[in-house]
Design a protein around this nucleic acid. Sequence first.
DNA 1: TTGACATATGTCAAATTGGGCATAATATTA
DNA 2: TAATATTATGCCCAATTTGACATATGTCAA
Lengths: 108, 108
Amino acid sequence: MTMDAKKRKRLEAAGWTVGDARDFLKLSPGEAALVEMRIALSRSLRERRLDAGLTQIALAKQLGSSQSRVAKLEAGDASVSLELLIRALLAIGASRRDVANALARRVA
Amino acid sequence: MTMDAKKRKRLEAAGWTVGDARDFLKLSPGEAALVEMRIALSRSLRERRLDAGLTQIALAKQLGSSQSRVAKLEAGDASVSLELLIRALLAIGASRRDVANALARRVA
DNA sequence: TTGACATATGTCAAATTGGGCATAATATTA
DNA sequence: TAATATTATGCCCAATTTGACATATGTCAA
């Protein structure tokens, strides 16, 4: 994890809400893009799961994972990788293009 | 790692070339998509690096990583995650949309 | 050829991520 | 309201991923 991400975690743990993370924390464009991707994928995952009428437990089963991890996936928790996020999307039937679209989706 | 991915590794280690991995190994659509994404991102990474006139060492430095890992990234090695692949693309200046496009790119 | 540079591959300790459990918080329904 | 279902969060530690290193292989010009 990068320095800035650690800093953010510390701040959030201390009860701060980070309004505009991008320049407040001076994230590099790449770091910012990564955060945005995580958010975009998280949201798509939740939408797809709900559209499919699945509970987190049901999705976890399809994924071969646990409810708690699905909750973290959808929360964009720092402990989940893009890798797992993408696996999860594929697990509920998203195509490669669907994932690409989700990835590029606006989140601001 | 999944069962089938392990199987593929064993086969490749034994000297086999996997022509059409998709149905020979009976990968699920999701697993196949994941493999394709890895390949697509790997290729985009190498193209971008070469276009930028960078060596693997130079890119490794920008990434905060090592030459060997960059080599593995470009080789689509099983030991690299989509996460790192995406970080690498962002590190050489790809935008979120660029990554999305790369991800969806045809590889067959 | 040799030498210099670039890339590939194997290994391993350290760091990150994952699964699963317990439990808390938050709906939702009777 | 209480009971039930769903989602969130913290924790542990096993598994995976990573950076770094050594070394092998490949490339190309002198």
